[in-house]
């Protein structure tokens, strides 16, 4: 009989600590599957951020590091440069990557570090209880934008994929959504491609995954996905912004 559902060996048996309906678990799984499918489990290593996915170092079943808030791309740089034979990725939230870690991600991308970055954008700080993120949508209420995000005061959400695509060095940049089964299948392909480029040592690869935070949005998992489809996807349009392998510059 064919096994169609299994837990990838590249994930440990530690149960995820995410809230019910949170998409971090799906993102982990896609990355783990891609790594395993390409036979990289023994040569892979990753960097966990500070955010709800801080415990990612416990979930991936290979050597992992944990970094200070926002600094994962710098830590990954140190790892990749000292062990070029290994494959390195970071897994980061929007607060981690697009707020405190803006300098690190821009410069890692600009150097064309041969690492993969998986950027989980849920438009909020999940871990700390729902504060505003750089990706929080206009008028969206959070605990630190209690009257809604006012764009004339604090600007618009940052479109990180587009921002990084202004740089010359990055090899691959794509944004996908995790909001429906079809989207997840598409996301898997994109994640696999990033891992494959990483395996081949082609350059800096970046995948933005549009996600949710049911707990801090105050919506159930289904409504969260609907809300994200209606509100996040129009602003954070899925698409490929750079793919040197396919001639997309």
């Amino acid at each position: 009989m064919e096994k169609i559902a299994y837990r990838p060996e590249s994930l440990t048996k530690t149960p995820f600590t995410y809230c019910p309906g949170c998409l971090h678990g799906i993102a982990h799984r896609l990355i783990a599957e891609a790594i395993e499918e390409q036979g990289l489990t023994n040569k892979m290593t990753g960097v966990a951020p500070v955010g709800c996915s801080v415990f990612a170092y416990k979930f991936f079943n290979f050597d992992m590091a944990q970094a200070a808030h926002g600094r994962a791309p710098a830590v990954a740089t140190g790892m990749k440069r000292s062990r070029p034979d290994m494959h390195v990725f970071t897994y980061q939230g929007d607060g981690d990557l697009a707020a405190i870690g803006t300098a690190e991600i821009v410069h890692a991308a600009n150097r064309g570090e041969r690492i993969s970055v998986f950027f989980v954008n849920n438009a909020i700080y999940g871990m700390t209880g729902g504060q505003m993120a750089p990706t929080t949508l206009p008028e969206m209420k959070t605990t630190t934008s209690p009257y809604g995000r006012k764009t004339d005061d604090i600007g618009f959400p940052i479109r990180v994929s587009e921002l990084l695509a202004t740089l010359v060095a990055p090899y691959y940049i794509e944004r996908v959504s995790l909001l429906s089964p079809t989207d997840i299948i598409k996301a898997k392909k994109v994640v696999s491609k990033a891992i494959q480029y990483n395996k081949e040592g082609r350059g800096f690869t970046f995948v933005e995954l549009i996600s949710t935070c049911p707990t801090n949005w105050g919506l159930d998992p289904i409504k969260s996905r609907d809300w994200a489809k209606d509100n996040m996807l129009p602003f954070f349009k899925p698409g490929c912004f750079r793919d040197k392998g396919e001639g997309v510059e």
Partner: peptide
């Protein structure tokens, strides 16, 4: 400021 537990 910037959010962080336990001062949020």
């Amino acid at each position: 400021a910037y959010p962080i537990t336990p001062q949020s």
